[in-house]
Design a protein around this nucleic acid. Structure first.
Length: 979
RNA sequence: GCCCGGGUGGCGGAACUGGUAGACGCGUUGGUCUCAAAAACCAAUAAGCGCAAGCUUGUGCGGGUUCGAUUCCCGCCCCGGGUACCA
């Protein structure tokens, strides 16, 4: 009987659904295992073959743990709020909820086909009001909490208020005035500085094209990650979360979790802890002081200038009269530069002397105070002490403006300070008064002690981590449960949640620049009278706690009940993309710690173990085309120029560019060509490649991979048809190779719609079946490694499944019938099975799925050779295979006479006794080179082995009559003879 | 620049604690079956030399430790990812 995967797979997918096979058990006495995938954003493009990679891996573990008797929680859901659905809504007017719903339906269909064992009864969607009700609830807790440095945890803000009312002022809390004399409004303003969710002026990444602010991790190279639009820095009132309060705990918590080193390192860098001290400098002839933060107080005597960030308000305060205008024009220049300009001109040194002088706290010397762009307003105090001799940035600044450079650290091997700064930390202090002769580290400590003694500053720890901006000027997100009463932001009551996202007529900002929610304002008011907050929460809000909701998905009384939280605790294995290192994975740790502080959950870290699956890249096909102008960068919004529309676009086969140069040049003149390329770039969204060959610039444009054969030749007919459907219905010219073929270039890169290189799992399921897809994706290589997708080799895996199938059937190919025998197995069969069981179990534990699949192949190849059809061998094998290829396993299991799903059959055990051999074929090497093999009994002692080897005929040949210098015997491994 | 990964046949990749380098699969070549093709099955397949037995060279490059190194140490090169004036 043929292996008919279509029928089998459908049959079992329906069976699982009908029998609720993967419904999570509520028996809390059983051992639990929580395995979670990072939930997807349901984009319109659907799943490509890269998405399921991690899901397949986690599904194998989930099914394997189920076999092992664990109560497994293996859920799936959707991170459904977000920009793309909203952009689409703006363009089409369709409600983002509708688009999202459609996309989810597509995802679900695709996921179902692969045979995952998700418990869909616990599905969550961040955009459901029954879900975001709790996201809003957490926001209210954050708003109503402050971070008490004494207890080192979040506490109710009322605790702080009570203390203030009693006239107490806890450490870290400071404000002007007397609490009990303050107005309501003033009290609110003070409390805002301590709430964990607060409204404050924040320097944000403002993206005018998207009409919203973006988080740091949503900005890449000064442009938005989605869409590539320019981003500028802007000071705006914003809701933020005080993640910085948790900086130290977020850092310390990394030590205890089993995450990849690179992931932890990325978080450590992002948190960016540095230790040093603050030092105050007085300004000559002024009451103002400048406070700087430095990690190198040992270089205090090398300070030759101070530099303030242009945004630092002191700059204009202290600017001395003759330089006032210069300074303020510099400040406004610096402020108006976009983030992109700043980034692209990092090397460019700008600055201005303020005209003011600071007094060196130890020497009393006057040192000039400058302002310069290289000083960041957001870090430390927004001011630095310039030590050009020992800091390369200060050095560049000093050189550029001709400032003094004084060496104060003398390393063992002399350095030339006139050439570059010495930034090393080994050496002794010179020219440094009381620090002279001290090693750097000692000098650091000594100087901090001195600074503290003289009350110039104090030991300080600084973090690079910024508070997280929590508002977006967008429609498609969770409304922030805040209303305004007399201009004071007030929290809603918990029992008034959810605050439902209102309907609006358009998803764009209003004419006056307010967020889209302002469009609902006339009817959308708190208790019919107070304005709601108009910004919505960012994309990461809902994903920062979703893992908790799965534990208790239907609960409408609580976010998660204490009982369930205590049972499920944390995620045992979390699988997802490495790109979330500093975004999602930091926020989810932050919220977890916060909810722990509230006493809601028993754990401080969301996931014990984290694994990042590698990206599956696409192999794109590109057609060479000809232009003669350099690439023009960003051209958003430009129309294709008219002259260009009339021109043909010339495509040229990969191997004949040079040959054809003269022929295609006649199509162009410089001027028109330039305009053409300008317009064209816009249409191709900047994914093309540009390569210079001779004086030609070849622009490689993506073509659908489906048009190109495995030998890289293009289906020219299809290609013409496709190009004709492009906007403008352009004319094209094609230059082929001499034999009439058109050769494309190949490039391995990210899979995306715009690169036309997407491969979907559906096609594989259709042609080979889900079991083959699952095995193949695992067989491709180590889970964590990125690899290009290639269908080469899928037949190998498919053949393996068919070979396995055949073991269970007897008779001629087409008329074969199912038959397994009850005969007792032989030792060869037992050895094959138990070897496989041992290896595969170990491989699953260390997530080495590619080697597990190959072990299955070895076993099945061996059994096929032995024509083994014994039930006692095949049954355990099928059970072990069931996490990898569940459909065929269920089918064979049923045919072997079982009436319950294979899912809980128990993990097959292996018996060492079947694996032991009594002899071993020793590789015998002479001087480290393997020369021959000798089969010897494993019972022999080292000495016996040595005797046997030396006396053997074959070895004597190599000894040439002489006695060996040395013989190394590793029993069961190797023999090495040194002559 | 800095921080993490990673460089092994024609290709994807094995080799767990220093012990037979190239498992398993793809591809390629030859064969069986067939009128033919597909499928299936069998055999070969790191490179070089050789009729052969066999020899030599081989895990990015150069050194080192060791009886023995893909594995450990030192110095470099290349590729991928992250990050970027963080004082």
């Amino acid at each position: 009987m043929e292996y008919d995967f279509r029928t089998i797979e459908q049959k079992w997918q329906q069976y699982w659904k009908k029998h609720h096979t993967f419904r999570t058990g509520n028996d809390f006495s059983r051992p639990k295992y929580y395995i979670l995938d990072m939930f997807p954003y349901p984009s319109g493009a659907g799943l490509h073959v890269g998405h399921p990679l991690g899901y397949i891996a986690s599904d194998i573990i989930a099914r394997y743990r189920r076999l092992g008797g664990f109560n497994v929680l293996h859920p799936m859901g959707y991170d459904a709020f977000g920009l793309p659905a909203e952009q689409y809504a703006i363009q089409t007017g369709q409600h983002p909820a509708v688009t999202t719903e459609n996309n989810i339906a597509t995802y679900r269909k695709q996921l179902d086909r692969i045979g995952f064992s998700f418990d869909w009864e616990r599905e969550v969607r961040t955009c459901d009001k029954s879900y975001y009700r709790w996201t809003q609830w957490i926001f209210l807790q954050l708003f109503n909490s402050w971070y008490n440095p004494l207890s080192d945890k979040a506490e109710p803000i009322n605790n702080l208020i009570q203390q203030l009312e009693k006239g107490q002022q806890p450490p870290g809390v400071s404000f002007e005035g007397q609490w009990n004399l303050m107005s309501e409004k003033e009290k609110h303003a003070v409390l805002m500085n301590y709430r964990l969710a607060y409204l404050g002026e924040a320097m944000v990444n403002w993206c005018p094209a998207l009409g919203t602010v973006l988080a740091n991790e949503e900005v890449k190279d000064g442009v938005s990650e989605r869409g590539g639009y320019p981003v500028e820095r802007k000071l705006m009132p914003q809701w933020s979360l005080r993640i910085t309060a948790y900086a130290e705990r977020l850092l310390a918590g990394l030590a205890a979790i089993d995450w990849s080193e690179s992931m932890k390192e990325a978080q450590r860098n992002w948190i960016g802890k540095s230790e040093g001290c603050s030092i105050r400098f007085n300004i000559k002839g002024s009451d103002e002081t400048v406070e700087v933060f430095t990690t190198r107080p040992d270089t205090i005597f090398g300070v030759t200038f101070l530099a303030l960030a242009p945004e630092n308000e002191l700059v204009e305060k202290i600017a001395a009269s003759p330089r006032r205008e210069l300074v303020s024009s510099y400040v406004s220049y610096a402020k108006n530069r976009t983030e992109r300009e700043r980034l692209s001109e990092v090397k460019k040194i700008t600055g201005e002397f303020t005209g003011a002088y600071a007094i060196h706290p130890f020497t009393g010397k006057e040192i000039p105070v400058w302002t310069g762009e290289y000083v960041l307003s957001g870090y430390g105090t927004g001011a630095v002490m310039g030590v050009p001799a020992h800091d390369s940035r200060d050095y560049a600044f000093a050189k550029h403006f001709g400032l003094e450079i004084v060496q104060v650290i003398n390393p063992a091997t002399p350095v030339d300070i006139s050439r570059e700064a010495f930034e090393g930390k080994n050496g002794r202090c010179i020219n440094s008064d009381f620090l002279n002769g001290l090693e750097v580290q000692d000098a650091v400590n000594r100087c901090i002690a001195e600074v503290e003694k003289r009350a110039l500053g104090r030991h300080r720890v600084n973090y690079r981590l910024r508070d997280a901006v929590f508002g977006r000027q967008r429609y498609w997100g969770e409304p922030i449960p805040i209303y305004y009463k007399d201009g004071i932001p007030c929290p809603m009551q918990e029992n008034e949640l959810p605050l439902v996202l209102p309907e609006v007529d358009k998803y764009l900002p209003t004419e006056s620049g307010e967020p889209p929610l302002a469009r609902a304002a006339t009817s959308w008011k708190y208790r019919g009278q107070y304005e709601y907050e108009k910004t919505t929460m960012p994309g990461w809000a809902g994903s920062s706690w979703y893992y908790l909701r799965y534990m208790d998905a239907g609960n409408d009384k609580e976010l998660v009940s204490a009982e369930t939280a205590n049972y499920w605790r944390d995620v045992d294995l979390y699988i997802g993309g490495a790109e979330h290192a500093t975004g999602h994975l930091l926020y989810v740790r932050f919220w977890t710690k916060f909810l722990y502080d509230l006493g809601l959950i028993p754990i401080q870290e969301p996931a014990k173990k984290l694994v990042n699956q590698g990206m599956i890249q696409g192999v794109s096909a590109l057609t060479g085309s000809v232009g003669k102008t350099p690439r023009i960068e960003s051209l958003h919004g430009k129309q294709l120029p008219l002259e260009a529309m009339k021109l043909p676009l010339v495509f040229v086969s990969e191997n004949s560019v040079e040959k054809n140069e003269a022929r295609f040049l006649k199509f162009y003149d410089e001027e028109v060509l330039k305009k053409y390329n300008d317009g064209y770039k816009h249409l191709t969204r900047g994914n093309d490649y540009e390569i210079i060959k001779g004086d030609m610039t070849i622009i490689y444009r993506h073509v659908p991979v489906g048009f190109v054969s495995r030998k890289d030749s293009l289906d020219i007919e299809k290609f013409r048809e496709w190009r004709a459907s492009w906007p403008g219905g352009e004319k094209i010219e094609i230059f082929t190779e001499e034999d009439g073929t058109f050769i494309c270039r190949r490039e391995t890169e990210k899979m995306s719609k715009s690169r036309f290189n997407v491969e979907t799992p559906d096609d594989i399921c259709e042609n080979y079946g889900a079991d083959t897809l699952r095995l193949y994706e695992m067989f491709l290589g180590p889970l964590e490694q990125s690899k290009p997708w290639s269908i080469n080799g899928i037949t190998g895996v498919h053949n393996f499944i068919r070979k396995l199938w055949k073991l269970f059937f007897t008779g001629e190919e087409n008329t074969s019938v199912f038959y397994v025998s009850d005969e007792a197995p032989g030792s060869a069969e037992l050895k094959l099975l138990h070897k496989a069981v041992k290896r595969i179990r170990e491989d699953i534990e260390r997530l080495s799925f590619n080697t597990a699949v190959s072990s299955f192949m070895i076993c099945v190849n061996g059994l096929a050779e032995l024509k083994c059809n014994k039930k006692s061998i095949l049954e355990p094998l099928v059970i072990l295979l069931s996490p990898f290829a569940p459909h065929i396993s269920e089918e064979l299991w049923e045919r072997m006479g079982h009436d319950q799903s294979i899912s809980f059959a128990g993990v097959p055990e292996y018996r060492e006794e079947y694996l032991t051999e009594d002899s071993f074929e020793y590789p015998v090497s002479v001087n480290g080179k393997t020369r021959l093999k000798l089969s010897l009994s494993l019972g022999l002692s080292k000495e016996d082995i040595e005797k046997e080897v030396i006396s053997s005929e074959a070895v004597r040949k190599y000894l040439g009559g002489a006695a060996p210098k040395k013989v190394i015997v590793v029993p069961g491994r190797i023999v090495n003879i040194v002559v």
